[in-house]
Computed example of a mutant assay.
Amino acid sequence: MTSEATSEQEVRALPSLSVQAERLIATGVLEHEASRLTAADVRAAAAELEGRAGAGALLVASETALPVRILVPSVTRMQRGQERPGFVVVDMEDLEEFLPTVEAAVPDARVYAVEDPSRGDGMRNWSPAEASEAIGAESRTPFTVAEGVHWALQVPEVIDRNACFMTIGSRRQKKNGFDSRTPALWISNGTGRDGRERRGAVKLGWCWWNNRHTWLGFASGSRRVG
């Protein structure tokens, strides 16, 4: 990892929800057989939400309407002149089992908005357990994995070397408690099972609940509007 990274203040602000809708539609992902949304659905939802959500809010398709796994490849990043699609690590075959937590309760809507997104740079090198407590104390809500992927789709530079984030609003329930893995988005170095061809690509992987990483903050928002 290099020491240079885009600061949170330098991350480009989100455009209007209607512009975000067009970006999502342009990926072609709504045509996937697993999608339960049409372009008309997304445009109508974005137009309606613009009257209720604050400026700078993030447009999100719920995981039940648009599975995260099929959206990840649309999160592209340039590496040495080549566009690299995002990918899910091979040992997250159970990604669909990482569901929104009580702290990240999503609206009962196929498309909704999250206000005031933050990458949580000030929490870099914190454990997810520590960050969860701090986010709650600030009356904010942790991002789900779907919200993190949608943000990276709309503003690619939010995932940068030395400045990426975890999405602790999504966890996998077990018989007693939660899975210790925590979803996160960062940039692949192209090593190990990632493969050299994925160097520089956005990677949806995981970190342990009690571990700390100097390059990972914790994404959160102020509230969801659905």
Score class of each variant (00 low, 15 high):
M1P: 05
T2K: 15
A5N: 04
T6M: 14
T6V: 09
T6W: 07
E8S: 06
E8K: 01
E8W: 04
V11P: 00
A13H: 13
A13I: 06
A13R: 13
L14D: 03
L14I: 11
P15R: 02
S16Y: 01
S18E: 09
S18F: 04
S18K: 09
V19D: 02
Q20E: 01
E22F: 08
R23N: 09
R23E: 07
I25A: 09
A26V: 13
L30P: 03
H32S: 04
S35L: 02
L37S: 06
A39W: 07
A45W: 00
A47Q: 14
A47P: 03
L49A: 05
L49R: 02
E50Q: 08
E50A: 04
E50P: 00
G54K: 13
A57M: 08
A57E: 04
L58G: 05
L58D: 02
A61N: 02
A61R: 00
S62R: 03
E63L: 08
T64W: 11
R69M: 07
I70T: 08
L71Q: 02
V72T: 02
P73M: 01
S74L: 02
R77F: 05
Q82I: 11
Q82S: 10
E83Q: 12
P85M: 04
P85D: 00
F87A: 10
V90L: 01
M92I: 01
D94W: 11
E96G: 14
E96Y: 14
L99C: 08
P100C: 09
T101Q: 08
T101G: 08
E103R: 15
A104N: 11
A105S: 10
V106T: 15
V106W: 09
D108W: 14
R110A: 14
Y112L: 06
Y112V: 01
A113H: 09
D116F: 04
S118H: 09
N125T: 02
N125E: 07
W126G: 01
S127N: 05
S127P: 07
A131T: 02
E133I: 14
G136T: 06
A137Y: 00
S139N: 15
S139A: 13
S139R: 12
R140S: 02
T141L: 13
P142G: 09
F143G: 00
A146H: 03
A146V: 01
G148Y: 11
V155M: 09
V155A: 12
E157Y: 10
I159C: 08
I159M: 07
D160E: 05
D160P: 00
D160Y: 03
D160M: 05
R161N: 12
R161F: 14
N162P: 03
A163L: 05
A163D: 01
C164H: 05
F165Q: 00
T167D: 00
R171I: 10
Q173H: 10
N176L: 08
F178Q: 04
S180F: 11
R181W: 12
T182D: 01
P183M: 11
P183Q: 04
A184L: 07
A184N: 12
L185M: 12
W186G: 06
I187G: 03
N189D: 11
G192I: 05
G195Q: 10
R196V: 13
G200D: 14
K203G: 06
K203D: 06
W206G: 03
W208L: 15
N211F: 12
N211P: 02
W215T: 14
G217F: 12
A219G: 10
G221I: 01
S222L: 12
R223L: 10
V225T: 15
